[in-house]
Simulated assay, not measured.
Amino acid sequence: MIRLTLYTTLGCHLCQQLEGLLVSLCHEPVEWTRVEISEDDALMARYGVRIPVLADAAGNELDRGFEPARLVAWLEARGWLDEEAWRQLRRRLDGEGVGGEARAAQIRNGRRYLGE
Score class of each variant (00 low, 15 high):
Gln17Trp: 03
Glu96Pro: 02
Glu101Lys: 15
Thr8Cys: 09
Ile51Tyr: 05
Gly100Ala: 07
Ser38Trp: 14
Tyr7Arg: 07
Thr33Tyr: 07
Glu39Pro: 01
Gln17Tyr: 07
Glu83Val: 15
Trp86Met: 08
Arg70Ser: 08
Val72Phe: 03
Glu83His: 12
Gly79Glu: 06
Ala102Cys: 01
Glu19Ala: 14
Arg3Phe: 07
Leu25Lys: 04
Leu114Lys: 04
Thr9Cys: 02
Ala105Cys: 11
Leu89Glu: 11
Met44Trp: 03
Pro68Lys: 08
Gln106Met: 11
Arg103Asn: 00
Glu36Tyr: 05
Ala102Ile: 02
Arg108His: 10
Leu43Lys: 12
Gly99Met: 05
Leu10Ala: 11
Arg111Phe: 12
Glu61Gly: 10
Glu67Tyr: 14
Glu96Ile: 02
Val30Gly: 00
Leu89Met: 15
Arg46Thr: 10
Leu4Val: 09
Gln88Phe: 01
Arg111Glu: 12
Leu89Arg: 15
Leu62Met: 09
Ala45Lys: 11
Pro52Thr: 10
Gly97Val: 03
Pro68Thr: 15
Arg78Pro: 10
Glu36Gln: 13
Gln88Asn: 12
Leu43Val: 04
His27Ser: 14
Val98Pro: 11
Ala57Asp: 15
Glu61Leu: 07
Gln106Lys: 12
Asp94Asn: 14
Arg34Leu: 00
Leu14Pro: 02
Val53Arg: 02
Glu83Gly: 10
Met44Cys: 10
Glu84His: 14
Ala45Pro: 04
Trp86Gly: 07
Glu83Phe: 01
Ile2Gly: 02
Leu89Thr: 07
Leu81Ala: 06
Leu25Gln: 00
Leu89Asn: 07
Leu71Tyr: 05
Leu114Asn: 01
Cys15Trp: 04
Leu14Thr: 05
Ala77Ile: 04
Gly95His: 08
Arg103Gln: 11
Leu21Trp: 08
Arg108Val: 11
Ile51Ser: 03
Gly95Asp: 02
Glu61Val: 05
Arg112Pro: 01
Glu83Gln: 15
Gln88Pro: 00
Tyr47Met: 07
Gly11Val: 02
Ala57Val: 13
Ala104Ser: 13
Glu28Arg: 15
Gly79Val: 05
Arg91Cys: 10
Leu54Cys: 07
Thr9Asp: 01
Leu89His: 11
Pro68Met: 09
Thr33Ala: 09
Leu114Asp: 05
Arg112Phe: 08
Arg108Pro: 01
Val35His: 06
Cys26Phe: 06
Asp94Gln: 15
Leu43Phe: 04
Gly65Val: 01
Ala45Leu: 09
Gly110Met: 09
Leu4Thr: 08
Tyr47Leu: 03
Asp41Thr: 06
Thr8Trp: 11
Gly97Gln: 03
Ile107Gly: 04
Phe66Gln: 15
Pro29Trp: 01
Leu18Met: 13
Ala105Asn: 12
Val72Cys: 06
Val72Asp: 04
Arg64Asp: 15
Leu75Ala: 02
Asp56Pro: 07
Val23Gln: 12
Asp56Asn: 14
Arg87Gln: 15
Leu93Pro: 04
His13Ala: 12
Gly20Met: 08
Ala57Pro: 08
Cys15Met: 00
Tyr113His: 14
Ala85Gly: 10
Ile2Met: 10
Glu84Lys: 15
Leu75Thr: 07
Glu39Gln: 12
Asp41Asn: 03
Leu18Lys: 09
